[in-house]
């Protein structure tokens, strides 16, 4: 429907799709926790964070759809792809456990995304730069929320400490995927449009280590690292998540919402 996209736009579309899918899938996991939180304040906070993530996903998916030349909108991309076409990191789809697992995942993602969005403020792509400026402010709150909970649970009771450490140990093998490098991000990084996440890793490790130190928790040393999400190779948890996500829309083909 539009002119053939340039090679760089095709790259950028794929990159933006990865980031949008991360936000969308994590939002979906948080949505399922609303009404199940330990306090009403937390129900509110989780809904609030999910809403921010959804805003990020909508902007990024819509932008990806304009870059790739297909003109697909946010809903077309969110609801009408196949499981294998999703580019989210496996961390996002990890099946929720107790509140400590929720916080451990938020800790990993909030620090990563704040660093990433801040770095993207300097992107040569004006749309991404504007997005980075807005989103980095929003995730500052997500980071504060995750940090404070990590410390409270780490230093609260023996049980909360045990659970928080177990949550970290469960989630940590999924962190490395966020920082993976491949030819695509290297090209975009060299062009100044995007940031190779590997460049953020050291800073991310310093930040989370400081939080874990304050929480008197141990930085996990995972024996393995998850990978595959950027190629659409997900865990078995993804298909049920996606089936639920689009169940209404699929039942009413041609519907308007």
């Amino acid at each position: 429907m539009t002119a053939e996209p340039t090679a760089e736009d095709t790259d950028l579309a794929e990159y933006v799709l990865r980031l949008g899918d991360d936000a969308l899938v994590l939002c979906q996991r948080l949505c399922a926790l609303v009404t199940r939180a330990p306090t009403i304040e937390e129900d509110l906070a989780l809904a609030n964070i999910a809403l921010d993530l959804l805003g990020h996903a909508r902007t990024l998916l819509a932008y990806s759809g304009t870059l790739d030349g297909t003109g697909r909108g946010e809903d077309e991309l969110a609801y009408h792809r196949t499981e294998r076409q999703f580019r989210s990191a496996l961390l996002m789809e990890l099946v929720p456990g107790d509140f400590a697992v929720t916080i451990a995942r938020q800790l990993v993602y909030a620090h990563y995304s704040r660093l990433l969005w801040s770095a993207l403020e300097k992107s040569s792509d004006a749309t991404l730069a504007a997005f980075g400026a807005r989103a980095s402010r929003e995730v500052e709150y997500h980071q504060m929320h995750a940090d404070q909970w990590t410390v409270r649970l780490g230093r609260g009771t023996a049980e909360s400490r045990r659970r928080m450490q177990a949550g970290l140990d469960l989630v940590w093998p999924y962190a490395a995927e966020l920082f993976e490098r491949d030819a695509l991000v290297d090209r975009l990084d060299a062009a100044g449009t995007a940031v190779a996440p590997a460049r953020l890793r050291e800073e991310w490790e310093r930040e989370v280590a400081a939080v874990l130190d304050e929480a008197r928790l141990t930085l996990p040393k995972p024996a393995w690292q998850a990978t595959g999400g950027r190629d659409g190779l997900h865990t078995e948890a993804f298909a049920p998540l996606f089936a639920e996500f689009r169940s209404v829309r699929l039942q009413y083909p041609g519907g308007t919402w």
């Binding site: 809904a47 996903a57 909508r58 519907g255």
Partner: peptide, 30 residues
């Protein structure tokens, strides 16, 4: 009252509706 609507958060049929419903359920908690 958050429950009957909250159970549809994961199934909202468009991202726009999902955002509105999240905001509404959040308001109810407030």
């Amino acid at each position: 009252g958050m429950q009957p609507e909250g159970s549809w958060l994961t199934r909202a049929p468009s991202l726009h509706r999902k955002a509105s419903l999240l905001a509404k359920v959040q308001d109810e908690a407030g």
